[in-house]
Simulated assay, not measured.
Amino acid sequence: MSDAHYGMHKRKGYSSDEPYPEIKVLGKNKYYAELLMDDYSGVASEFTSVTQYLYHDFDLDENYRELSEMWINISITEMLHMEILAKTIRLLGGNPIYRGSSSSCGAYWNGGFVFYGDSICSRLKSDLHLEYVAIENYYKDISIIEDPYIKAILNRIILDEKVHVGLFKKAIEKYCK
């Protein structure tokens, strides 16, 4: 994926300024592909994040433009992560269909993975938790995977997730006093 492609999807203030590494792998590895399926579309995944944050935006009162902008732009960044993971899974010999691995016992992704919430605060707190779980899962994968290219990809995605943690913390401070 070219820098121009990344640039088209990067949102200033909603992702790290660090460049993304080239998407490549040492070779086919179905085990690694299967590990990444949870990050891609498992219970606490990029796909869950995208759908959860978009739902939170769609169900938002017009008076919360700042939150709307945040949820939409973070979703776009998470979509880029999905694309990166899908391409990595393919290179590893996997098929990036919408299902998890161990987190969902291999089941297909479903809307039950989304925390819909009934208030801005419950949603923001759930979103923050989802980011923490994603970061934890990426670090777990990094400790297992012995491919430096995949490790670089996951470490770069973590940088964006840490930006999202900061944004959600700031929003919680502002809206959940």
Rank of each mutant, 00 (worst) to 15 (best):
residue 71 W to I: 06
residue 175 Y to R: 00
residue 129 H to G: 11
residue 125 K to G: 03
residue 47 F to P: 00
residue 118 D to S: 14
residue 44 A to L: 11
residue 141 D to M: 10
residue 165 V to E: 11
residue 19 P to N: 11
residue 18 E to Y: 08
residue 167 L to Y: 09
residue 124 L to T: 01
residue 146 E to L: 14
residue 119 S to A: 01
residue 20 Y to M: 07
residue 118 D to T: 12
residue 142 I to T: 03
residue 50 V to I: 15
residue 116 Y to R: 14
residue 2 S to N: 06
residue 24 K to Q: 11
residue 74 I to T: 07
residue 99 R to S: 11
residue 26 L to K: 15
residue 96 P to W: 07
residue 32 Y to W: 06
residue 19 P to Q: 07
residue 23 I to W: 01
residue 125 K to M: 10
residue 123 R to L: 05
residue 130 L to S: 12
residue 37 M to Y: 02
residue 96 P to R: 09
residue 40 Y to W: 09
residue 31 Y to I: 14
residue 88 T to G: 00
residue 98 Y to D: 11
residue 21 P to Y: 08
residue 114 V to Q: 01
residue 49 S to W: 01
residue 75 S to G: 13
residue 58 F to E: 14
residue 176 C to V: 02
residue 50 V to R: 05
residue 18 E to L: 11
residue 171 A to S: 07
residue 149 Y to V: 00
residue 79 M to Q: 09
residue 8 M to G: 14
residue 122 S to I: 09
residue 69 E to Y: 11
residue 126 S to H: 12
residue 140 K to Y: 15
residue 94 G to Q: 02
residue 76 I to E: 09
residue 105 C to H: 14
residue 79 M to Y: 04
residue 16 S to I: 00
residue 100 G to C: 04
residue 107 A to C: 11
residue 104 S to Y: 04
residue 99 R to N: 10
residue 32 Y to C: 03
residue 8 M to P: 00
residue 141 D to R: 15
residue 17 D to E: 15
residue 27 G to F: 05
residue 46 E to K: 02
residue 87 K to T: 10
residue 115 F to V: 13
residue 95 N to M: 06
residue 168 F to M: 08
residue 20 Y to P: 01
residue 35 L to E: 01
residue 108 Y to N: 10
residue 65 R to Y: 11
residue 52 Q to Y: 08
residue 73 N to C: 05
residue 140 K to P: 00
residue 59 D to F: 04
residue 12 K to G: 05
residue 100 G to D: 04
residue 23 I to Y: 02
residue 105 C to V: 13
residue 111 G to P: 12
residue 106 G to I: 06
residue 52 Q to A: 11
residue 153 I to H: 01
residue 39 D to G: 14
residue 108 Y to G: 09
residue 171 A to D: 04
residue 31 Y to V: 14
residue 59 D to Y: 10
residue 135 I to W: 03
residue 89 I to Y: 06
residue 114 V to K: 07
residue 137 N to H: 12
residue 76 I to C: 03
residue 65 R to P: 06
residue 67 L to P: 01
residue 106 G to L: 03
residue 27 G to Q: 12
residue 124 L to Q: 02
residue 132 Y to L: 12
residue 50 V to L: 12
